[in-house]
Design a protein around this nucleic acid. Structure first.
Length: 1000
RNA sequence: GCGGGGGUGCCCGAGCCUGGUCAAAGGGGUCGGGCUGAGGACCCGAUGGCGUAGGCCUGCGUGGGUUCAAAUCCCACCCCCCGCACCA
């Protein structure tokens, strides 16, 4: 893959250079190679491994960056962290891509050339699936290394490694033993030419073949020949007036099992893929069937076969039951019948009268008739209108329709009493009075069980063509193996497992619950693609969502398998039983496999140390499949203590507001981004763009602004370092309020960032680290502006700055590890910041007191700004009057009133009894009450217990206030000091925590 | 249809669980100022309306309700996005 991009600017170039430097050091010193260290707490996390059918792109970067930031955070917290990676060669993704290359798909070749930058001489070679996988595997691996992920590469594997296949065979043997694997039939999209199942990847224009189910209701003629009417609405069988066939279409009489059917020629062709034997006995035109009478299996009536041109021999069986009351096509076709035809077959119009079956809100007795008339449909040839009418009627009836009670009267009219009684009973119990959706399922099930009906599958969005041009049909696969995720006992265990797994973010838990309830048996093997063969069913390859459910366990020992050069044939069921489950006698296993006891024990220890998995990471699209199967299979194979502990789900990564897709050509390879902006920029952008669970929008402006932010961060750190490195001895003994303030704020930030990281709210963590700390540091510098060069303060400030720098770099290290390493070494620290200790909260640095003081100053400044804004004056002198300490009692009363949920008048009543000057108080009582309800909870708490020395605080901040406001002078008076002048009559306006302000 | 997630200021996007700190974080854009030969970058300020004193009014999809107090809680409705299987 050619990297044809140049760094965005000099700083990006710098980031790329230092990244390479530190990556080489990390690899050289093997700092991310994690070995089992019994006694040391471990943290094992994995991200979903990629299909190597393209280079790693920004979507992968999202998941892996989240995983890596978490890994690095945990590592700094002192955990023995394992983050491994592998590659998923299994299944159709790789295969389909290779086939598209072989077919010289222009769009794809363009993507390969233009976006991926693959050289022309390589591309043809990628038509071989394995070559393609190896190629993209190599590129992806480089991409991941270049992004600085702290992966232990010794454990890397692919899903077609013989050793891994041995593991998968063991897993499936376990599933089979537990009865979780079942054999059955299964309908799939099928190319008759290739004789192969086809999915979306194999079709022209990537259309997903949708498989639907027709109910075939058996109408029978007097010779016992069956006319299977294909319908999507079996509940309307009670209202059938006649049967339609297309007189000019080809029909055949076929032998199906032990029955004889009459169906369209085309239907017979399609049914060949769904029945064991279909034998054509006779061919003829539909015309030949007209006028015949066939018996409705439910009503017993003998209805006539009539001609209708709308009947499509390629849909269903070409035999259509006519329900004019509820199907617009049928009613329209009846309108089209001329008297000649009717008299020819001896049919009276009365016989074809629509028969109401369903009551629907908003419609009369005969919805189809109503709609046809309303839309002025004159004949069955008005296809477009009829489609619309059908959609409307079907939709309304399905949604709101209820079967009429009186449908019972149609049942078994012409049948013997005993049969009638039985049928009437069935219809009364399951059909009449039921909602349409329910009645439909009931009647279909009952008819099938009673052999009055059958099913036929069909591609509902037909025609869908295979890439070879052949139209796809539905084939019923015999001997298909399923994993039975519908097994009720298994489901129950999985529910329990889920309840103990931490889902991040928690909103996604409902999706898991829903999936568990809904998931049924799943076909787990296919007839082609790379992967592992089912041990007992040669030719069946375990498909990719089924061979990737417990592979995380394989990481724990994959490096040892390589180290000891264990061969696949040594990795027997007994081997895995011992290593993964601790079952069996190690000596016997050793004897049967030829693996030394010591090695077996070592592998067992590795597995036992690392497992269970502490955190599993993937994007949200894997919830309804992979992640749920992941839980299922763990519960099936492993004991409870080895079940996964946490699943972290991230949203999509959108590119400029659009979902990434190969057809849009907006798949951005990770390598390109790394080489354009530098890996730390890519990482920080991904983290800053949104919280883990949400979709993130990746835009050029955002990356560029992050790049810029990183530059500023670097500059700030180096600036601070310059300021304190000039001072030889650092000494923090003489801390002033503002020093204490920044130290206290840093503790709060450490606490909040740590908490955010623990909960994988990395965006919040990054936000605090990059923006809020920055703001506080700037404020601190502003506040110590005049002191910085004083000999008295120099050392203390230097000490504070060195503390900030040290903590700050460590806080950002998980997100931007390369720049953090670079800065860490620039300020003279030893060792890797990647391995440094995560900053701890120093309780002794926390000072609510100084924080409140600083907040108070802020509030006063805000008030001043407000006044200046309103009066549009240019301030020169600012006079402040602070309230007496006694007034805090009044404020406390007000706060208590608010906390108790009492209104203003309640406060007035209480406070009035305590004050001397009632009139004066009445004027400012509302101010107290408003202030008390407006201030944040921490201030309420603080002020209930403490009295602020406002005079002192403001006096200390005079210079700062003057500088901030742009005033020449700030004067502070006590409002109860009789000697202070009452400028502007403001003295009496001072209340606790809110001084009176006069601006000149 | 079933299930899940949403609708916030010019735009993106926090807040909602645990009501008062919310005219509502942060970013972008825009406007004004500083800096500059000019531009860019950078720094400061403004960015719902009104207001000559720290205030008032309107406001977080729509309509109701609970409460001294609602973007936040409850009810109804409208709209948008995602998943629904053998396809990874």
């Amino acid at each position: 893959m050619n990297i044809y991009v140049k760094p965005h600017n000099d700083f990006a170039k710098y980031l790329i250079e230092i990244a390479r430097k530190w990556q080489e050091k990390w690899i050289k010193d093997k700092i991310f190679e994690a070995d089992a260290k019994p006694g040391k707490p471990k943290f094992f996390l994995t991200a979903a491994f990629p299909y190597p059918n393209g280079p790693s792109h920004m979507g992968h970067a999202r998941t892996y960056t989240v995983t890596d930031v978490y890994a690095r955070f945990k590592r700094m917290q002192g955990y023995n962290v394992l983050f491994p990676m592998g590659f998923h060669y299994t299944g159709t993704p790789v295969l389909a891509m290779a086939e598209a290359v072989a077919a010289k798909d222009e769009k794809l070749l363009n993507l390969f050339r233009k976006v991926y930058g693959i050289p022309d001489d390589i591309i043809p070679k990628l038509s071989d699936p394995l070559t393609m996988a190896r190629y993209f595997h190599a590129i992806s691996k480089i991409s991941l290394i270049e992004t600085g992920y702290s992966i232990d590469w010794r454990r890397e594997f692919t899903t077609i490694d013989p050793e891994f296949k041995a593991f998968i065979r063991w897993q499936f043997e376990k599933l089979r033993q537990k009865g979780y694997l079942v054999k059955g039939t299964h309908p799939v999209g099928w190319c008759p030419k290739h004789n192969m199942p086809v999915g979306m990847h194999d079709t022209k224009d990537d259309v997903e073949p949708e498989i639907g189910e027709w109910t075939l209701i058996f109408f029978e003629d007097e010779d016992g020949i069956i006319y299977p009417a294909a319908t999507l609405r079996p509940e309307t069988v009670l209202g059938v007036t006649n049967i339609w066939v297309n007189p000019s279409a080809d029909y055949v009489k076929v032998k199906v099992d032990d029955m004889e059917w009459i169906i369209s020629d085309r239907a017979a062709y399609k049914l060949r893929f769904q029945r064991k034997r279909i034998e054509v006995i006779e061919k003829f035109k539909g015309e030949k069937l007209l006028g015949k009478r066939v018996r409705n299996p439910v009503t017993g009536e003998r209805v006539v076969i009539l001609p209708a041109s709308f009947v499509d021999p390629d849909t269903g069986t070409g035999i259509v039951m006519s329900v004019p009351a509820h199907a617009p096509y049928d009613y329209a076709a009846i309108i089209d019948l001329d008297r000649e035809v009717l008299s020819k077959y001896g049919v009276s119009l009365d016989e074809l009268k629509p028969r109401p079956l369903i009551r629907v809100k908003g419609y009369g007795e005969l919805p189809a008739v109503e709609v046809v008339e309303r839309m002025k449909i004159k004949s069955q040839n008005e296809r477009e209108k009829l489609e619309e009418a059908t959609k409307e009627v079907y939709g309304a009836e399905y949604k709101y329709g209820v079967m009429r009670e009186d449908v019972v009267k149609y049942v078994a009219q012409d049948l013997p009493d005993n049969v009638r009684r039985y049928l009437v009973g069935v219809v009364k119990a399951w059909i009449a009075g039921k909602p349409v959706s329910e009645a439909r399922d009931n009647i279909a099930r009952w008819l099938k069980e009673s052999r009055y009906a059958d099913v036929m599958y069909e591609i509902m969005n037909k025609p869908v063509y295979c890439r070879c041009g052949t139209e796809i049909v539905v084939k019923i696969l015999e001997d298909q193996w399923f994993i039975d995720y519908g097994n009720p006992e298994w489901k129950e265990i999985v529910r329990k497992a889920l309840s103990k797994i931490r889902i991040v973010p928690p909103e996604y838990r409902e999706d898991f619950k829903y999936t568990i309830e809904w998931v049924q048996r799943r076909a787990c093997a296919r007839t082609r693609g790379l992967g592992t063969e089912l041990p007992w069913a040669p030719g069946w390859i375990i498909e990719s969502l089924s061979d990737s459910t417990i592979y995380m366990a394989y990481y724990t020992i994959s490096h040892k398998i390589k180290e000891y050069k264990l061969r696949a044939e040594q990795l027997t069921y007994e081997f895995w039983d011992y290593v993964m489950l601790g079952k069996g006698d190690v000596k016997e296993v050793s004897k049967s496999t030829g693996i030394p006891v010591k090695v077996l024990e070592e592998l067992r220890k590795e597995f036992d140390y690392w497992y269970p998995l502490d955190s599993r990471h993937s994007a949200k699209d894997l919830i309804p499949n992979h992640l749920t199967f992941f839980i299922y299979n763990h519960t099936a194979i492993f004991p409870e203590e080895k079940w996964p502990r946490q699943i972290a789900v991230n949203g999509w990564l959108l590119i400029r507001g659009h979902k990434m897709s190969k057809s849009l050509g907006n798949v951005i390879p990770l390598r390109i981004m790394n080489h354009l902006y530098g890996p730390d920029t890519v990482r920080a952008t991904v983290i800053l763009s949104s919280e883990v669970g949400q979709d993130a929008d990746f835009t050029d402006e955002l990356v560029e602004s992050v790049l810029d932010k990183l530059k500023k961060f670097r500059d700030t750190i180096m600036e601070l370092h310059k300021m304190y490195s000039k001072v030889k001895e650092l000494n923090g003994t003489e801390l002033t309020d503002i020093d204490k303030w920044i130290l206290s704020r840093m503790q709060k930030h450490i606490k909040n960032i740590t908490n955010a990281m623990e909960n994988l709210r990395f965006r919040e963590a990054a936000n605090i680290a990059f923006y809020i700390i920055d703001k506080d540091v700037k404020r601190y510098l502003e506040r110590v502006y005049d002191e910085i060069n004083s000999s008295k303060r120099k050392k203390t400030i230097a000490w504070v700055l060195s503390y900030i720098v040290d903590v700050w770099i460590r806080l950002v290290a998980p997100i931007i590890p390369h720049l953090a390493e670079e800065l860490w070494s620039s300020i003279g620290k030893q060792g890797y910041v990647s391995l440094a200790k995560w900053p701890e909260v120093k309780e002794e640095y926390i000072s609510v007191d100084v924080e409140v003081k600083e907040e108070y100053v802020d509030r006063v400044i805000n008030d001043m700004k407000e006044i200046i804004k309103v009066t549009k004056t240019k301030p020169s002198r600012i006079i402040l009057y602070v309230a007496s300490k006694d007034s805090y009692e009044i404020l406390r009363d007000a706060i208590r009133t608010v906390l108790n949920g009492k209104p203003l008048k309640e406060f007035m009543r209480q406070a009035l009894s305590k004050v001397k000057d009632r009139k004066a108080f009445a004027r400012i009582a509302k101010k107290y009450y408003d202030l008390a309800s407006e201030i944040p909870p921490h201030l309420k708490d603080y002020l209930l217990e403490n009295t602020l020395d406002e005079y002192q605080v403001l006096s200390n901040a005079k210079e700062y206030i003057a500088r901030t406001i742009g005033a020449k002078e700030v004067i502070v008076y006590l409002s109860d000091d009789p000697s202070a002048p009452d400028i502007g009559g403001k003295k009496k306006m001072a209340i606790a925590f809110k001084p009176a302000i006069y601006i000149e």
